[in-house]
């Protein structure tokens, strides 16, 4: 029972991370397509006050996994050693690039930092989905070396990576729309179509090439997928009518729906490795009540802090 609660809390933190950091990773990805200096600056200004808080959600999900399901955490990160280190490097360099971007004056350095911010954002979004895809399908090894890298690349994981990337791009485009960014409109449709295509690819390859197809009948899977469909459809119309705030809520719902779908497909399984299956029950730590107490009091508090900073910076920031 407590194991299930912890699993749900982990899924919740993942969902919050996806919708909170998702839009700033998305803005970063889209910024690769910005040419005009003022457009770039406007994108960065929209993120500066809030990206830091968004990223803490990643830490909270990671540490909750470490606390509640330590064998899963250790197995995932040591097996995916190279991708995890690359991800860490990207997180560092992306953050530094974004923070230092407005503090350098040299045009070449400025553009390079902005480029790294864009590449880093896209890489993180893709890598998070890619690793999640591999974790979901199960890994045929438990070894953190170079030789296993080719085994990581399979259609489902690639589609999961690209779905996450394009979800972030879509969510980022919607956020830019809310912030009245000039290029938001141009970004919306390509991101929308790319997301639908890759999500369809992930569903198809997941059903055909992995054992996940059998899990589609689990409870909550269809309602969650239904939520995604409904959010996606309404998002299309809300965006066309220029309801930017509603659109942002809807693209957030889409992210929540996607995480619930994945979590519902997996539960109670967490990671399949050769010869054993780590589940929420077999991998749970011994002091779940403490972890649950910390997390359950922590989440509302953190959400309040997030809302406070979103509210303070709710309008478009102009350069002083």
């Amino acid at each position: 029972m407590l194991e299930a609660v912890c699993f749900i809390l982990f899924a919740s933190l993942t969902a919050i991370y996806l919708i909170a950091d998702g839009f700033d990773l998305g803005v970063g990805t889209l910024s690769l397509f910005l040419r005009d200096t003022r457009d770039k600056a406007a994108a960065a200004y929209a993120l500066w006050p809030i990206w830091n808080g968004n990223e803490v959600w990643l830490l909270s999900a990671v540490v909750l996994l470490m606390a509640a399901f330590s064998p899963v955490y250790a197995a995932i990160l040591s097996s995916f050693y190279i991708p995890a280190i690359l991800l860490a490097a990207a997180i560092i360099f992306r953050g530094i690039s974004l923070e230092f971007y407005d503090k350098v004056t040299n045009a070449f350095l400025k553009n390079t930092l902005f480029l790294f911010f864009g590449i880093g954002s896209a890489f993180i979004a893709f890598a998070v989905g890619f690793v999640a895809g591999n974790v979901m399908r199960g890994i045929p090894f438990e070894s953190g070396s170079f030789t296993i890298l080719p085994a990581l690349i399979d259609p489902f994981s690639l589609f999961m990576g690209s779905s996450t990337l394009f979800y972030c791009a879509l969510h980022g485009a919607v956020f830019l729309g809310y912030k009245q960014h000039g290029k938001a409109r141009a970004f919306f449709m390509p991101a929308f179509i790319a997301f639908i295509a890759s999500a369809a690819g992930a569903t198809l390859s997941g059903t055909l090439t992995t054992s996940l197809g059998t899990a589609l009948g689990k409870p909550l899977v269809f309602p969650a997928v239904g939520l995604c469909m409904a959010a996606l459809t309404s998002l299309f119309f809300a965006s066309r009518r220029g309801h930017t705030r509603t659109a942002f809520v809807l693209s957030s719902l889409l992210g929540i729906g996607a995480v619930i779908s994945c979590a519902a497909i997996m539960f109670p399984n967490m990671l399949a490795t050769p010869g054993r299956m780590l589940t929420a029950y077999s991998a749970a730590s011994s002091n779940l009540p403490v972890i649950i107490a910390i997390t359950i009091t922590g989440i509302p508090l953190a959400i309040c802090f997030n809302i406070l900073s979103y509210w303070v910076f709710r309008t478009v920031r102009k350069k002083q």
Binding site: V56, S60, S286, I294
Partner: peptide, 29 residues
Amino acid sequence: NALFSSILLIEIFFAFFIESTFLGIYLFG
């Protein structure tokens, strides 16, 4: 087990979120 990481979890919820939120307000507000 969860002992060490429980303390880290407390740090995240009861320190990091405070820092990141008020950093934004301090710097840009």
